[in-house]
Computed example of a mutant assay.
Amino acid sequence: MPAVDALVCFALYAANRTTTQAYRVLLDPFGLTYPQYIALVTLWADGEQTVKSLGEALQLDSGTLSPMLSRMEAAGYVTRTRSTDDERVVGIALTERGTALREELAHVPRCIAAGAGFTDAEAARDLIDALHRLTDAMKSLRDHPDTVLDAVGAPRPRA
């Protein structure tokens, strides 16, 4: 067994990479990428919103989000509209075609769940909850590394 197989970080990396590849197989026939798909899912569930709020929901910066939304607009899935009150604010909404994709892509979550071996919604929910706890913990480590370094007695670089 390779040494990396014993690392949590590598197991997460491998699972994420393989899951993204599985989504690619399912979404390529529709000309969509995974980030475009999650943008559509967010708009289907939450409705029209600002580009800023969509970026926050998807954890994407504007440098990634803007070109992606531009491609989605060119494909006829969304419209972007500048606010008349504040031209810095851009709204994003689904078009009729973007709304219709919801039905066409309804099989995708079922395929992912089946491929992951989930036998019921509770199994999926348990994994999602565990991953949310992990994400929150890693954000805490990212934002407050000294707390964790002190807790584990990690050495500090010499100045």
Rank of each mutant, 00 (worst) to 15 (best):
M1T: 14
A3M: 13
L7P: 01
L7G: 02
C9H: 06
F10A: 15
Y13P: 06
T19Y: 05
Q21K: 10
A22R: 14
R24W: 01
V25C: 03
D28A: 15
G31N: 11
L32K: 04
Y37N: 10
L40Q: 06
V41E: 08
V41M: 02
L43R: 03
L43C: 03
A45L: 07
D46Q: 14
G47L: 07
G47C: 05
V51P: 01
L54K: 06
L54Y: 00
G55Q: 04
E56K: 15
S62Y: 15
G63N: 15
T64S: 05
M68I: 03
M68L: 15
R71D: 13
M72Y: 04
R82K: 13
S83C: 08
V89S: 09
V89H: 03
L94M: 09
T95V: 04
E96K: 12
G98S: 11
L101Y: 12
L101D: 08
L101H: 04
L101S: 11
E104F: 00
E104N: 08
A106Q: 13
A106L: 08
H107L: 13
H107R: 03
H107K: 03
V108P: 05
A113W: 03
A116V: 06
G117Y: 11
F118C: 12
F118M: 11
A121K: 05
A123H: 12
A124Q: 14
L131T: 13
H132K: 09
R133G: 02
R133Y: 01
K139W: 04
L141V: 15
D143R: 10
L149C: 07
A151R: 06
V152S: 01
A159W: 00
